[in-house]
Each structure stands twice: as structure tokens, then as C-alpha cells.
């Protein structure tokens, strides 16, 4: 019950998906759609699991007043505000009324202010409060925190990339060429000083493109072969029950 049933569920579902691919009969294709729906709904509950864990961990920090607890409180407040705005923000739907009819606009405005439209949800047009939070809180932080990675990788590269030997030199050289090739000013000066004067020297854009298309593809293709075969092997191990990741994290 505790060990064999999960194994049977995983194997039957996995084999059913494989069979469905090779035998795309009407009933099997429908079955796939239903299984995907099941997966989507179960996945939603898995997200709830993650979110409850996040809130619980942060709430414990606040309750115990442990170190830096105010930041945990900020996380909880941020979650609650965004969730309420996105999940139940339908009270704030935009009024829809014929333009120019002042009374109709006012009436619709008044009605709309208290009209609950649960379906508005994360539709930014129908739920401007969520739209505001998304555009002015979520997006700026998302973009800035990801932009910070440019500095992290640059500083990591400064420490790690030393042209100690030929292989390290190739790595460094390819990185520098691609970075310069993607910067319009560097490409402009390269082309002005070298490519336009000496015929045999290609433009920086051409060198970058060559690196991306040929050596980069060769490396990726070789790696993809390995990744594909390893993933295929792992999938087969799961299907035959040699690997049981669904058993992790729970005791018998």
C-alpha cells in the first residue's frame, strides 16, 4: 500500500503516456488531455504546499523574533497583498459605459466600484490594483534582480577566468569576442579600424555569429547527446521502479 501502490501508479501512468504516443487512437488522445488536466490540478496543490511552507517558515521567524525577523514579516505582507489583489481583486473592475454619457458613466462607475468579478483575477485590464502591483512592484524588482546577475557573473569571471593555458584562453577569448560583438560601439570601432581597411578581417558581428553557430553548436550538440541519453536512462529507471523519487521526504 505504502510502497507498491505509488510504484504501480508511476509505472502505469508512464507507460500509458508512451503507448499514447505510439498509438494515438481517439480514446488515448482524450486520456492524455485528462491526465494533463489532472497534472495541472495536482500541480496547483503542490504549489500550495510550497507556499504554505514559505509562509510557515517566515511566520515562525516572526513569532520567535529571530534574527532579521522584520524581513520575514515583509515577505508575508508582500505575499498577502499580492495574493489578495490577484486572487480577490475583482472589486475594482473598470467601469464600462458608452463614452460621453456622463450619467451612465457615473452610474457604471458607482456600480463597478462594488461589483465583485472573481474572474477578473490577474487580468490587468479588469483588475487595475493587481496591474499596478505587477507593473510597479513585481516587474521592476524582477528585472533589477536579474540585471544584478550581470555584475555577479562579471565579477566571478574576473576571479575565475585567467588565461593560464590554451583552453582557459579560448574560453576567455570567446567570451570577450561575443560580449564585444553584442555591443554596438565595440562592433562599430572594430569595423571602422580593421574590417573596412583590411579585406581579410571579418566584421566583429561575423566572428560572433561564427562562434555562436559553429563551435557553440558543436559543444552544445555533444552535451545534448549526453544529456538526452542520461535523461532517457533515468526515465527508464523510474518507469521500471529502480529509481523512486516519489518516496523521498516521507517515512514508512
Amino acid at each position: 500500500m505504502r510502497k507498491q501502490v505509488p510504484f504501480l501508479i508511476a509505472t502505469i501512468m508512464g507507460l500509458a503516456m508512451v503507448v499514447q504516443f505510439f498509438v494515438p487512437a481517439h480514446g488515448l488522445v482524450e486520456m492524455q488531455a485528462i491526465v494533463l488536466l489532472y497534472g495541472r490540478i495536482i500541480g496547483a496543490f503542490a504549489l500550495i504546499l510550497g507556499i504554505v511552507s514559505l509562509i510557515r517558515v517566515n511566520w515562525v521567524r516572526v513569532k520567535r523574533k529571530s534574527e532579521n525577523w522584520p524581513y520575514a514579516l515583509i515577505t508575508i505582507i508582500g505575499f498577502i497583498i499580492m495574493f489578495l489583489a490577484g486572487g480577490f481583486g475583482g472589486f475594482f473592475i473598470e467601469p464600462e459605459a458608452p463614452a460621453g454619457e456622463a450619467e451612465a458613466v457615473a452610474a457604471a462607475d458607482e456600480a463597478a466600484a462594488w461589483d465583485f468579478d472573481f474572474g477578473a483575477g490577474i487580468d490587468q485590464e479588469r483588475n487595475p490594483v493587481f496591474g499596478w502591483l505587477f507593473n510597479y512592484v513585481f516587474v521592476p524588482m524582477d528585472a533589477t534582480i536579474f540585471a544584478l546577475l550581470a555584475f555577479y557573473v562579471a565579477s566571478a569571471a574576473y576571479r575565475a577566468m585567467r588565461a593560464r593555458d590554451l583552453t582557459a584562453g579560448l574560453l576567455l577569448g570567446a567570451a570577450v569576442i561575443v560580449m564585444l560583438g553584442r555591443a554596438s560601439l565595440a562592433s562599430f570601432w572594430w569595423d571602422q579600424l580593421l574590417s573596412s581597411r583590411i579585406d581579410i578581417i571579418p566584421t566583429l558581428g561575423e566572428i560572433t555569429e561564427w562562434l555562436m553557430v559553429y563551435p557553440n553548436t558543436a559543444a552544445k550538440r555533444g552535451v545534448y547527446f549526453g544529456v538526452g541519453l542520461a535523461a532517457l536512462g533515468q526515465a527508464i529507471r523510474i518507469l521500471v521502479g529502480l529509481e523512486r523519487p516519489y518516496m523521498a521526504g516521507t517515512s514508512d
Binding site: L54, I76, G78, F79, M82, F83, A85, G86, I122
Partner: peptide, 13 residues
């Protein structure tokens, strides 16, 4: 911290 909370709230919504 705000980003973590807001991202989780967005995911939940």
C-alpha cells in the same frame, strides 16, 4: 524579502 513574498503571491493568485 518583498520580491519573494510578491512572487509567491503572484504564483498563488
Amino acid at each position: 524579502s518583498l520580491f519573494v513574498g510578491v512572487s509567491a503571491g503572484y504564483g498563488a493568485a
